[in-house]
């Protein structure tokens, strides 16, 4: 029983880490620009196809593919911001959100036209054979996904805490006007934020596509990650990470204790419960309004 439960938790954490990465992408863009980017899931899907093309089509070494995918995903984020978001930056937020939904549909359909709608297996360097540590059983794949995600998260933390650009990004998130007055180029920060978010989505894609297979509908995983971000408190970076991981574990455990139907809705039941008890999410700060 404990043996099975612990494997459930580990494999849930692996999926949860991927949710967390995607949720991070949502939160970073939201914090910096107040936009909820519904094309975040599509970054995951597109990066999957990029690495598929590089690996299978061009036969490039896995390490290089990983690096190239992250860079190309970042570029895609910048392009998307320039082409779709920036021209309508002064429009109401709602219009921008709709524009990101439009972008996601375009990306999804383009992938379908280029690659077809069939599922494709994406190779990975992590083995799916079982490993045993004490009584916990998991795969190298699980461990790899968790490890790699943690590295990315720590790197991001250090970037925001220690670098000048990171500080400028945090400043912009707090007050665009003040940041501008301090000599921060806010438009450059916006581009950078989109690049980082898309690159993190790219990492998530390379990690998750070998597990749940690659197809143009892969981006719908973004919906679950979005729920994870809200669970943690939308706008909170630790919240996105904890929310995403929690989601992965809860999904697995509810599937184990109940059935597939409950597993499917468990995310949303939990989400509603959390929002009823703590409207700002687990880590979100309650909004303070001056009267």
């Amino acid at each position: 029983m404990t043996e099975i439960l612990s494997s459930q938790v580990v494999s849930g954490l692996a999926t949860g880490c991927v949710y967390a990465l995607i949720a991070l992408g949502f939160v970073l863009i939201f914090k910096a620009t107040d936009v909820v980017n519904f094309a975040q899931g599509e970054f995951v899907m597109v990066s999957g196809f990029i690495s598929y093309t590089l690996l299978i089509g061009l036969g490039i070494h896995y390490g290089l593919v990983l690096l190239a995918t992250i860079v190309l995903s970042g570029v895609m984020g910048v392009v998307l911001e320039r082409v779709v978001v920036r021209p309508i930056m002064d429009a109401p937020i709602f219009s921008i959100v709709i524009a990101t939904i439009g972008a996601s549909i375009v990306l999804r359909s383009s992938a379908g036209i280029l690659y077809g709608y069939d599922v494709l297996p994406l190779p990975t360097i992590f083995s799916k054979d079982p490993i045993r540590v004490g009584f916990v059983q998991f795969t190298a794949m699980d461990a790899g996904v968790i490890g790699f995600s943690l590295v990315i998260m720590v790197a991001l933390y250090l970037f925001f805490k220690l670098t000048r650009t990171g500080t400028a990004m945090r400043a912009t998130a707090q007050s665009q006007t003040a940041a501008r007055l301090m000599g921060v180029s806010v438009t450059r920060i916006f581009s950078l934020t989109w690049a980082i978010s898309a690159a993190i989505g790219g990492v998530a894609g390379v990690l998750i596509a070998p597990i749940i297979y690659l197809d143009p509908n892969l981006g719908f995983i973004g919906v679950k990650a979005f729920a994870g971000a809200i669970l943690g408190g939308f706008g909170s970076i630790p919240g996105a990470i904890v929310g995403g991981m929690l989601l992965g574990v809860i999904e697995n455990l509810s599937g184990y204790f109940f059935n597939a139907g409950i597993k499917q809705v468990s995310t949303y039941i939990l989400l509603i419960l959390v929002l009823v008890i703590r409207p700002a999410g687990l880590f979100g700060a309650a909004p303070i309004r001056k009267v």
């Binding site: 099975i4 494997s7 459930q8 494999s11 849930g12 999926t15 749940i212 297979y213 999904e251 697995n252 455990l253 509810s254 599937g255 184990y256 059935n259 597939a260 139907g261 597993k263 499917q264």
Partner: peptide, 20 residues
Amino acid sequence: EVDYKRADIDFSSQAAKLKE
């Protein structure tokens, strides 16, 4: 007797139940 929903793709809990 373990079920899954159309278009599901994660079966770790089903695998655990089957093993048990």
